[in-house]
Amino acid sequence: MLNIPDLEKRWLHYKIKSFLPYIITLIFTFLIITIYSFFDTSNSKKIIKIKETKNTPAVTKEKKKIIIQKSLQKKPLQKTINSSEKHTLKLSPSMSFIKTIQRDKAIEKRPVKYKKTKLKPIQKVEIELKPIHKKQVPTITIMRQNTSKDIQNILHRFKEDKNPALSLFLAKNYYELGDYKKASNYALITNQLNKKIEDSWLIFAKSLVKMGKKEKAIQLLQEYISKSHSTNAAILLDNIKSGEFQ
């Protein structure tokens, strides 16, 4: 009679022994394939990226256009912001809104919420107002907070790039806040940077009047009117002379 348990054990040993080379080969093959495919995919990704950047700019542009159009359809406000951004970058900042602020007290007193970060968003807000009025989008709220911080921020920026628009903005702000000395200083700085900016003359004149230097203001305005024939300056001069503006 055969020793079955021993024979079964020997058979199991034989099977493991006979399958071992195949298992090892299989594992090695799998590892090689995995490693190869890993490197292959990383290389192909690079190639695709290069191809995308080199060969398909038109397609990407078209895609971008499509995306912009889609986003316009979904978010029309965002589109107006982007387009207006381009305009502001090219043109000099329009300060006409300040006038409107001055004239329309209701608008001045309106609680304005202001984005904290930079001046550019503020400029965005200025231009955004137009589409808001035109399209009457009720969801937009203009945030303005902490004016002194804004002034500090703009002051800092002005120190960096000496932009007359910024100094004029500061002059106007200081004038609004009642700090006429600073207002006149920044108006003068703006004037020194660019003599053609009418508002710098007007703010400077107004500040002089507020500081009690009415004569000097009148003289200044007369000089400016003789050179520029500005109607705004003439109106202000009449107002000062008549005592309407004190």
Binding site: L2, L7, W11, K17
Partner: peptide, 16 residues
Amino acid sequence: TKYIEMAAIQTGLIDA
């Protein structure tokens, strides 16, 4: 096949 292999191991036809 297992039994054939077991018999082969027993007879020495398979070296296990």
